[in-house]
């Protein structure tokens, strides 16, 4: 799938792009607005736009086209909600041999962390979560969010500093 001559108008190529990018695109928008339904709608709209413009968008540019379109749609209909993140349950099972008090403290910590993340400024949050949850490299985050690598690193550091301030000594 590296060929430059691949046309986005071909069903196979189009669905390949969907399978590759839709999840990150969805998460990215969700990190911004915290609304699952809105995130899904925006992903759908972005891919429909890609289809309607498939003859004008070359394969290599499709990814940034999608993110740019999604970002613009988002800006046009901002309706922010608090984002709600879930645990990966596997992690908790691992530490189940700890004392009940420890588990309680852990749960409290997680709750506090989620709130703190939800309260982060949008720009710091999207960078932090794309890095920590979606395991994207800074360079990729820069491409997704449409800012420079330097700005992404700054936002990442700022996010950590902001979060750190929410917690006292452990």
């Amino acid at each position: 799938m590296s060929s430059e001559t691949k046309s986005v108008c071909e069903k196979v190529t189009y669905e390949y792009l969907f399978n590759t990018h839709s999840k990150t695109l969805y998460n990215y928008i969700y990190y911004k607005c915290g609304d699952e339904q809105q995130a899904e709608d925006i992903v759908q709209d972005a891919f429909i736009k890609l289809w309607n413009n498939c003859s004008k968008v070359v394969f290599d540019k499709a990814k940034s086209f999608l993110y740019t379109v999604a970002r613009n749609i988002f800006l046009n209909e901002v309706a922010h909600k608090k984002i709600v993140l879930e645990h990966q349950n596997t992690q908790i099972n691992k530490v189940s041999n700890e004392t009940p008090q420890f588990i309680l403290e852990e749960q409290e910590f997680m709750q506090k962390l989620k709130t703190a993340i939800a309260n982060l400024p949008e720009k710091q949050r999207e960078v932090f979560l794309l890095s920590r949850i979606d395991k994207k490299k800074y360079s990729e985050i820069a491409e997704i969010t449409g800012v420079s690598l330097k700005a992404v690193e700054k936002r990442m550091s700022l996010a950590l500093v902001t979060l750190r301030k929410q917690f006292g000594k452990i």
Partner: peptide, 18 residues
């Protein structure tokens, strides 16, 4: 220790299922 905990914990988070 705090930052490490934040980092470790945040990696166990996940976005809503899509």
């Amino acid at each position: 220790p705090v930052l490490k905990k934040i980092n470790d914990a945040s990696q166990t988070l996940k976005a809503p299922t899509f």
